[in-house]
Amino acid sequence: MERKIVELYTQSGLLSARRRLFASRIITLLVCAAALGICISFCIGVDAHNAVRRLVCAIAVSAVGGWTAITLRLLLISRFKRTAAHYKAVLEGKRERIEGAFSVSDETIRITGGVSIKRVRVIAANADRELSLFSSMRPLFPADKAAAVYSVYDFISAYEVERS
């Protein structure tokens, strides 16, 4: 029976990850610029009478703006950066074809400084082994239907299914 290859990683996926990274960087930059702009506006026309009140306002705006930027950096930018780097590495890496039966664990493993993954157990004719699946790809990978997978650096990058 004929098989078809379903790619999990594509150039458009990489482009989309890079777009998200760019957008999150722009949003962070805008937040910082807005906070800085407001703080500078507090400095205009300041005198001995309103200095303390304006200083408190400037510190508050600067702190909140900075905290927002830090949160965006930690939650969005670093995540999108890791995703884009992961896509690039998988797309440029050398592929290895593995046949067998596959089962995906429910548990998500968060690698510090890396992407979150799910472990995939491969029951093959020669030897059993474990592969990794980028957790965002889990809904796209039907483990029970896959007849073979292609792995790059032990990450599943594509799979083969029987053409119906």
Binding site: C39, C43, V46, D47, A48, A51, R54, L55, A58, I59, S62, A63, G66, W67, I70, L74
Partner: peptide, 24 residues
């Protein structure tokens, strides 16, 4: 990540305190 937020607050106080002292 609490230390990052605290550090930024400290930086804000020092930076704007310095700027306002300079301006006024």
């Amino acid at each position: 990540n609490f230390h990052r937020y605290l550090l930024w607050l400290l930086c804000s106080v020092i930076l704007w305190g310095f700027v306002f002292t300079l301006i006024t």
